[in-house]
Simulated scan of single mutants.
Amino acid sequence: MDSIWFRDGESPRKPRLSRERIIEAAIALLDAEGVNGFSMRRLAARLGAGTMSLYEYVAAKEDLLDLALDAALAEIEIVTDPDATWRDVLTRQLTHSRKVMLGHPWIPALVGTRPLLGPGALARSEQIFAALDRAGLKGPTLTAAVSAVSGYVHGFVAEELAWRSRFRDPAAEAHLRDQAEQLLRDRASDYPALAKTFRAGEADFDSGFKLGLSIVLDGIETRLSEHPSAPTP
């Protein structure tokens, strides 16, 4: 993959624009139009510049997607409290990750397809890996734990964004939830567990995310207690 992060020494030739200004405009365009609506022509129009002038600062559209994604990920909080436990670090970073992704709804569409090797992304990955390494996870278990928590956050937010884009009217959303519960009551003999336990009207993204993240972290904590190793000082 020919990623911008593998190339050194690239610098804009002309000061009329700036890479920083272009990245800022790229993020604004992605926020407004999403990945499918992003193009160099539209970005140039937003900047009041010629399309070809952008190529004085980046080699390709893919470079801009990488740069915009990394700049957006850099908005995620870095936990600086030296006394924070591994669980505190992950909870705070991942909770803020959801907030940032909701503010930039195009992030989930890119994180699985772009090399997350920019300074913003690497600093956030470093914090999670370091916290779990200090807690005592090692090797494949550490990698799997990071994958589990990141997969939970990205999957949850992607589903949340899809739902929010479909149901913008709270009344329409409440009506659908009522219909879902009624359907399960009507088919209780076919789906007894769902009819007994599922309460669509009680669903709430904020509390659901918090509880789900807690369950994922409980699993990591169980693994640590079952397979203890000396934490890194």
Rank of each mutant, 00 (worst) to 15 (best):
D31K: 04
R134N: 06
L90H: 05
W86H: 14
D63F: 02
G139I: 01
P108Q: 09
R87V: 01
L132G: 03
K210F: 06
T85G: 13
E10C: 06
V157Q: 00
D190R: 11
S97G: 10
V146G: 01
F205W: 15
R19Q: 12
P231T: 02
S18M: 08
V216K: 06
G48Y: 13
I107P: 02
E173H: 07
A158S: 15
L213Q: 04
R87G: 01
Y55L: 13
R98V: 01
I27E: 10
I23D: 09
A172I: 02
A68M: 12
D169L: 11
L117H: 12
R16M: 09
L224V: 09
G208H: 05
D70G: 02
R7H: 09
E33R: 15
R114W: 03
A144V: 03
T113V: 14
E181N: 08
A188I: 02
D218S: 08
A68G: 11
R168F: 01
L217P: 00
G34T: 06
I78M: 12
R92S: 05
D218Y: 03
D169Y: 11
M101F: 07
E226I: 06
A109T: 13
L17E: 05
A158H: 08
F209Y: 15
E77D: 14
F205H: 14
K99R: 14
K61C: 04
L17M: 12
R177M: 12
P82F: 02
L117Y: 11
L110E: 09
D178T: 13
L142N: 05
D66C: 13
F198G: 00
L183H: 12
S18G: 10
R124L: 10
R187L: 14
R98T: 02
T80L: 12
P231L: 06
D178C: 02
T141A: 15
T85R: 13
G34V: 08
L184R: 09
P170T: 12
